[in-house]
Design a protein around this nucleic acid. Structure first.
Lengths: 206, 206
DNA sequence: TCCTTTAATGACCGTCAAGTCATAATAAGC
DNA sequence: GCTTATTATGACTTGACGGTCATTAAAGGA
């Protein structure tokens, strides 16, 4: 008798619209009317599928990071430091901007919503742990120095790489500059800022 | 005849109050009434000294980064890589939190105010240039590898270190963890993730 | 003390957007 | 095609906050 709708499909449609709005304009600037228009429905309809703007954002965050997480999780474990760094290179965003601005918006207002911090922070914790595990394995193979605590090192590298992404997204959304600095960062992660060791081909006397 | 007040002193008082509010609550959450109460004056009085909330924030940003900038500028140029890293260590925040949350708030909403981005981004550009100059000089002395473009490397290092600060401030405001990761980061910047070179005392075979 | 000029106040206004709900539209069964 | 349960709509309500301004207070000179 009744009219029946695929609830999940509607939620997906709304989330897609919200993602588009939030990512281009930012969370706070986006009005629920904007989302409704993007999803081609009336504002009231949104509230049949999400309790409010906050819930909408949370669902979006969970979906977004969930996808990245499953994608990263099924990558093969690197066997060498070079492989690790190659993986890092591939998994860094290429476009600048993107979702970074959205996170700024969400984390911004006094960290109002601890759930958002938990989702985002949880992801970085998780990734830091992954890197930590990989460092431990690589250290056993002599591919990575053994004097660092792998767990701390994992979190540290994650934070440093994210800093790169954030700065590029916020201050210099130029793909060329991004590529150059990503490569510089990876190179620094590999061998540090100090002069090349004698085992590598590089002159030492000026 | 007239009543006369020290305009600058009032502005300082207001800026101090605003800094306190913005840093603890965030920019968007803070109401002008909050700032007024913190400065012990009525809301209307604020508008005699600052055009509006945005101007207040901008003035605060300029003051904040101006102070850091002059402090860093009068530091002596490092003569060795070790000195450079020591300076980095000293110039990193020790408390976690602090101003970072405020910047998130300001940069957040769709980067609305380009002036704020300019102030903050300008600071990091400036610091990246400083580091770049130092790298150039250190490379000449054989203290730093010569295969990196100093300018890019300076910006890159600044971004990576800021990432560390951001993550600690947002996700893990624990001073102990901060110290541990700061040290890990500095160590990685020095010699990289790879195993120690033969010139340094460290076993290579497991 | 009184007058004049500048500073301080806080009730008020206008705007803006999140969220609501009475009403309309839709689809499935009979 | 009629009935009914469910879904969709968008005008309206509500609350909040940045900014204003008529009014009051303060300070210095005569």
């Amino acid at each position: 008798m009744p009219k029946i709708v695929d609830r999940e499909e509607m939620q997906t449609r709304i989330l897609d619209a919200a993602a588009s709005c939030f990512m281009t304009q930012g969370f706070h600037v986006t009005k629920m009317d904007d989302v409704a228009r993007a999803a081609q429905m009336a504002k009231g309809t949104l509230y049949l599928y999400f309790k409010g703007k906050d819930e909408l954002m949370l669902a979006l965050l969970r979906r977004y990071f969930g996808e990245i997480q499953t994608r990263i999780a099924q990558l093969p474990a690197p066997q060498t430091l070079e492989q690790f760094l190659h993986g890092v290179r591939l998994s860094m965003p290429t476009d600048g901007q993107g979702a970074t601005s959205m996170f700024f918006d969400v984390l911004g207002p006094g960290f109002q919503d601890p759930r958002a911090v938990e989702v985002i922070g949880g992801f970085f914790d998780w990734l830091g742990d992954i890197y930590g595990d990989q460092f431990r394995a690589l250290a056993d193979r002599g591919e990575v120095r053994r004097d660092l605590d792998p767990g701390q090192a994992g979190r540290t590298v994650v934070a440093m790489l994210d800093g790169l992404t954030i700065h590029l997204a916020l201050f210099n959304p130029d793909p060329q500059a991004f590529a150059a600095r990503r490569d510089a960062a990876i190179s620094i992660l590999a061998t540090g800022l100090g002069p090349a060791s004698p085992t590598q081909p590089m002159k030492e006397t000026p």
